[in-house]
Amino acid sequence: MNAQTQITEVTSPGETREMSYAEAIRDAMTIALDRDPTVILMGEDIGTYGGAFQVTLDLIDKYGPERIMDTPISELGGAGVAVGAALTGLKPIFEFQFSDFAALAMEQIVNQAAKLRYMLGGEAAVPVVFRMPAGSGTGAAAQHSQSFEAWFGHVPGLKVVQPSTPEDAKGLLLAALADPDPVIVFEHKLLYKMKGQVPTGYYTTPIGKAAIRRTGDAVTIVASAIMVHRALEAATKLAAEGIEVEVIDLRSVRPIDRDTIIASVKKTGKLLCVYEGVRTLGVGAEISALIAESEAFDYLDAPIQRLGGAEAPIPYNPDLERAAVPQVADIETVARRLAKGEV
């Protein structure tokens, strides 16, 4: 068997089943654990407890503590063990309880995992997957609600994905596992319960490929994670007014799907980036810049707009918390103004 067939194998899914986003992730991990004995899961309270968000529920019963490894509360060390294991032949999926805690492990993720292949001139590989529950909306306040995709997206050597549907949550996680390099999967906490049809077999959703969730010609909205759903809701409302918005689900922050975004903006001439991370120096800045630098520039018919998180930590008060990240009405307002040439 050659390596190529192993990596690119994608079975035709055919059958689907309704699953929640969390179940789809669990399904992906189950398939991976069954397919590949080198796959292990690591993280805090992922065993009997089932993980902070119950994503790994019951897996320890089937696979045992040697493959479903509870780690001490040692994010830096735990991430580093995962890196070392990946470097030497295992395929660890490391779960952070909250993406915020990855700040404790930045050293291993950014200095080690992302750079080892390069520093060693291609002589080493770190096929580790970091799963990071992210985003606000749960009342967990400033240290349990952040969206760090831009942080990690800034690091060459990492791949960063943000699934917005159960189907992609499974497909992107399996793609992350098949990838020979470190991949960070941001799972939005508010999406864990979202249901959707998910192919039952093994399949991968390509990393680096955005999805057009709705076509339109008036405005392009590039959104990620839960913002995709808010953008779609805004688009439905705007359609009633005759404004057809194209909604692109970014799916992958790094590598970013330049072609899809550029093609859409060339069609609509208007771009709105919607993301939950802090607006300044966020993912929207990159998308804006890539459009400004691309051939799509000459198709722009309005200034590029960004809707991102407030320049503040995520607050506790529920009204403040909502106000700190883009909501449907915000997206609707800005998209409408863009469509009408009022921006």
Partner: peptide, 24 residues
């Protein structure tokens, strides 16, 4: 003028000064 307005005018040999802007 927006970039696309400038490009279209340039391609069509239209002086932008002759065009009325309806935008902000």
């Amino acid at each position: 003028a927006t970039p696309v307005a400038r490009r279209l005018a340039r391609e069509a040999g239209l002086a932008l000064a002759e065009v009325l802007g309806s935008g902000p």
